[in-house]
């Protein structure tokens, strides 16, 4: 009985991931995944469920958890999300912003979508300057993304184009306008440091 439940979840995840990969065929070259070598193929392993320890993003859980991550340009984002949503593939879990630091000069924005155990992560990199830190809003396709986009813009200073509401969500009302706490250069000091910046 336990064995059966595990394999059902796993089989569903594999199917879901195959479907996602089929949908993302036009962008297949962007998929970040080590190509299975001839040995793996000779063993008859499904290239999609390639050992997860060799994928970029790992996943907790049992069996061989399935994750697919794909790097996109900001301009391609809407089309990809639209394709997945049109096919009714999964739901948006959240949007994560990661500041890669001043040296890299980039902020990575990750859109996590899931269907069952399968997770697809869309990775979009934007610049750190005001003009380049711009990403299109996906609220027209997924309305529930609004909160996540508000969080993204206040925490990392990314301008989300056409988002329905760009008000502050978590930060206090008197927070200084150009201080973004999740940027690497922001030192996690106490609030008095922020007060000092404020006055």
């Amino acid at each position: 009985m336990p064995q059966q439940s595990k394999s059902t979840a796993q089989a569903q995840a594999e199917t879901a991931l195959l479907a996602a990969e089929a949908l993302l065929q036009p962008w297949a070259s962007h998929i970040n995944k080590p190509q299975p070598d001839d040995k793996t193929l000779a063993r008859g392993e499904n290239p999609l469920v390639f050992p997860y320890s060799r994928r970029r993003i790992k996943l907790t859980g049992h069996g061989r958890p399935d994750v697919l991550d794909i790097s996109l340009q900001p301009a391609e984002l809407l089309e990809v999300v639209q394709t997945l949503m049109d096919a009714n593939w999964g739901y948006l879990i959240t949007i994560t912003g990661v500041d890669l630091g001043p040296e890299a000069g980039e902020i990575e924005v990750l859109y996590h979508l899931a269907q069952g155990a399968a997770v697809v992560t869309l990775s979009v990199k934007v610049g750190r300057e005001t003009e380049t830190a711009v990403i299109p809003s996906i609220c027209s396709i997924i309305p529930s993304a609004s909160f996540f986009e508000r969080e993204l813009s206040e925490m990392l200073g990314i301008t989300v184009q056409n988002t329905p509401n760009s008000d502050r969500l978590f930060l206090p009302d008197d927070w200084p306008a150009d201080v973004y706490p999740l940027r690497k250069e922001f030192v996690a000091g106490s609030a008095t440091a922020v007060d000092a910046q404020n006055t």
Binding site: P181, F186, A188, S190, A191, A193, V194
Partner: peptide, 9 residues
């Protein structure tokens, strides 16, 4: 939560 940026104390 000591040292978190949004905490006054």
């Amino acid at each position: 939560f000591q040292g978190c940026y949004n905490v006054v104390g």
